[in-house]
Amino acid sequence: MKRAALLVLLAFPALADIPPQETWDCRGKEAGATCKTADGNAGTCVQMEFTRPKFKGGGTYTALGCRQTAPAPAPKKAALPWLGTGLAFLALVGAARFSRRPSIGVV
């Protein structure tokens, strides 16, 4: 148990030196290059701002990180209210079109 605790303590500063996951696939690449995000989605290397842990002196620094560009899996939910609005709009268009049709009088 003591050994495990010692291992964790020794590993902690080393963990702090690991660059953020976002930068992993942009190492040696230029801004604008394609990359894969940590989740495996397609992305582009862009300058990102990162925060240093307090015990490493704190503050921020910039580095190339991978920002996702592929369609996110979730926006369909956000689109739902718009989908409803769209359907209501189509119903309105149908009503306007129908009311526009000239009536045929019986002679």
Binding site: A31, G32, A33, T34, A42, G43, T44, V46, R67, T69
Partner: peptide, 13 residues
């Protein structure tokens, strides 16, 4: 790079 990020993301540089 900003225009690349917004107008041509995901393409080879």
């Amino acid at each position: 790079g900003e225009f690349v990020e917004t107008n041509a993301p995901g393409f080879e540089p």
